[in-house]
Write a protein that binds this DNA or RNA. Sequence first.
DNA 1: CATATAATTCTATATTCGTTGAAATATGGA
DNA 2: TCCATATTTCAACGAATATAGAATTATATG
Lengths: 117, 117
Amino acid sequence: MERSGAVAALAALAQENRLDVFRLLVAAGPAGLAAGRLAAALDLAPNTLTFHFDRLRMAGLVTVRREGRSMIYAARYETMNALLAYLTENCCRGAQTCGPAVCEPSLPARKRKRETA
Amino acid sequence: MERSGAVAALAALAQENRLDVFRLLVAAGPAGLAAGRLAAALDLAPNTLTFHFDRLRMAGLVTVRREGRSMIYAARYETMNALLAYLTENCCRGAQTCGPAVCEPSLPARKRKRETA
DNA sequence: CATATAATTCTATATTCGTTGAAATATGGA
DNA sequence: TCCATATTTCAACGAATATAGAATTATATG
């Protein structure tokens, strides 16, 4: 990730409602959540939410897919991890002290190629 | 760290010049850098830089101290790490897959209580 | 087709942001 | 004290941001 992409992602997350949206999507995992459900959960007007979704999407932090009448938004872990990598790039250069700082779905242990159980 | 603090830190970093400033400070370590040196390095007007320093300082991302005629700015790793922790909080809940995501000075291996060498 | 649901688009508006230029403050040295 | 250096403060301005209201598009169902 380069600087402009990092700034875009940071700006997208630098807003209370969007940060809430993104955290809910991260917690929701790859299945994502319908726009309406998020609107209800966060008590936001649907058009306001659309505005915020656009920001998140332009920053590459979420994806959308249509499912019937609903639009399902889901977190893009790849971008999130690239951002974390960019932010920690200048820290403890070369030392292993710094963890990889990765973000993965919260509830992945279902259909994975058997590991840890 | 709570949401408002995270938003403040994200907003502070969500600007090209400020992100550059912060990364240079992170790379510079606890010794920090004089405002003038950063102004020269980034080719920014001194008053513009003051504006950005204020944002970073209000977000708790940097500290200042006077040294002669110069103002020395330094990164606050503590806040940076709290932000990283907040961002990765909802990721792979409970799994060790996610690293600790910490940010420490780049060149610390000098006066530490002997470890790893 | 008519209607309800889900979400988006468009327009407007108050607020905040980033930069600039001029003036002011603080420190150190002759 | 006088002057240069280092940085901040103040005022102004165009640009971007976040929200709200009204109208529109898309999908499903009777």
